[in-house]
């Protein structure tokens, strides 16, 4: 008889251990990702995502996809390269949204009493599903980066229009025409966020003034393509040095 015997003797036991590993590691990874991604996103796109009267046709549409693609790209590398699992984007975007909902309900409504409809986060799941499914179909970072990231930027606004359109209905208020979103921003007093602080579309003398959204969305998609490759690279560097080797 050997002196040292592994506790794992059967395939079934091994299966159980691997399963237990999944159930312990995956929640930790998800929590850490939610925390880190949330901090990153609030620091970059914070107010645009917080308030209904910041969700405009130019800045919000441009900034959200570009700043948002960092984590999905890094996780694509980690989960695809080492596990052939195509859910990195959906995992972190769904985690981020769950965290955002907690923050909106607890802080913005529970603590500061803003109405929940004023602080609903942007819808980002459809973009994540596209990025993941393109990776699965193409099995290529190159194709995902070029085609997936482009669609990622393009569908952000259409995917959110169903949520924000009701707030763009016009109202007459004290002799001004405002959108309902503007009116909510005015009604629900924000002492530290005055009207002028909003970074939103101001209109220009340029032509194509009508097609602000498509221009912004294409630009967002275009930059997202580059951002995707940069962050796949960073994911590569991080995955190599930190924890994958320890498995």
């Amino acid at each position: 008889m050997g002196v040292v015997r592994s506790a794992i003797t059967t395939a079934e036991q091994q299966h159980r251990v691997y399963k237990a590993f999944d159930w312990i590691v995956i929640p930790i990874v998800v929590l850490v990702i939610i925390g880190a991604f949330h901090i990153h996103f609030m620091l970059t796109a914070g107010d645009w995502d917080f308030w209904i009267d910041w969700k405009d046709r130019r800045w919000w549409v441009t900034i959200t996809p570009i700043t948002l693609i960092f984590f999905p790209a890094a996780l694509h590398y980690l989960f695809w390269q080492h596990f052939r699992l195509p859910f990195g984007a959906t995992l972190c975007c769904a985690g981020l949204l769950a965290g955002e909902w907690v923050s909106r309900v607890v802080n913005f409504v529970g603590w500061a009493y803003y109405p929940l409809n004023m602080v609903v986060p942007a819808e980002i799941i459809p973009m994540a599903l596209v990025l993941d499914s393109v990776l699965l179909i193409s099995r290529s970072f190159l194709v995902t980066g070029v085609i997936g990231s482009m669609i990622w930027g393009l569908i952000f606004y259409p995917a959110n229009w169903a949520i924000i359109a009701p707030y763009h209905v016009p109202v007459e208020y004290n002799g001004n025409m405002m959108s309902i979103a503007d009116l909510m921003g005015y009604s629900y007093v924000r002492t530290g966020t005055p009207e002028y602080i909003r970074i939103i579309e101001e209109g220009t003398l340029r032509t194509f003034g009508e097609s602000v959204v498509p221009v912004s969305a294409f630009f967002a998609g275009f930059i997202s393509v580059f951002a995707y490759f940069i962050w796949v690279g960073i994911g590569k560097a991080l995955a190599k040095t930190i924890w994958v080797k320890k498995l």
């Binding site: 599903l129 359109a165 763009h168 209905v169």
Partner: peptide, 27 residues
């Protein structure tokens, strides 16, 4: 992939039909 793009496209046009009159944020 196709399902997501179809639902997003449908929801966009459906919303346009429900809210034909909208304005950009006023600044």
């Amino acid at each position: 992939l196709i399902g997501t793009v179809v639902v997003v496209t449908w929801s966009y046009y459906d919303t346009q039909a429900k809210y034909p009159i909208t304005i950009p944020l006023q600044s």
